[in-house]
Amino acid sequence: MNFFRLLGDLSHLASILILLHKIKTTRSCRGLSFKTQALYVAVFITRYLDLTYRWVSLYNFVMKLFFIGSSCATLYLMRYKYCPTHDPSIDTFKIEYLVGPCAILALIFNYKFSVSEVLWSFSIFLESVAILPQLFMLQRTGEAETITTHYLAALGIYRAFYIPNWIYRYFTEGVVDPIAIVAGIAQTGLYLDFFYVYFTKVMQGEKFELPA
């Protein structure tokens, strides 16, 4: 564990708490992509299968449980409790275009051709693009509630913090994880447009609005 990874994980944790807070306080999941949330459930379940057979640390264990639990809870809230506030007609990104290529990539790029390793690779690739339905939705509506933008910012920053973590680990431990690094850089890249608007508008107290 190092400082950058801890910051990344805390940012990830914060993003989920902000998301749940948004849903609870506004009693609505307006502006949120159900598809993105469903992809995160798939990401966490396929990546954290090792919970059942490998012990890393208490920190690792608790965080994994939290990520699986909270993503399932979010999905439940969106699907049942606040279902009427979710508008499927604007959540139209075709996730087949994400899941299919990620599955193929995972079959080609993995550290070992075993079920758990291929699923791990799949989860890394899928995570890197899971935000696309959400960003696509944002693009369509052209605006977002401020709390939703805080959620997205925290979620985007999380993987960005992992980049210095990987550099640090390379120099201190000699650990290199090319699959995670390439996917993590791509994942962070997807947020650049969003970050630009977030830091120049929302952080200055303005509403998040995309230019028409």
């Binding site: 990830h12 090792d50 890393v56 994994k64 990520f67 992992y162 000699g174 994880d177 995670a180």
Partner: peptide, 10 residues
């Protein structure tokens, strides 16, 4: 040469 990836990250 690559070490076996420990997958100790989240």
């Amino acid at each position: 040469q690559a070490k076996e990836t420990p997958h100790d990250e989240l």
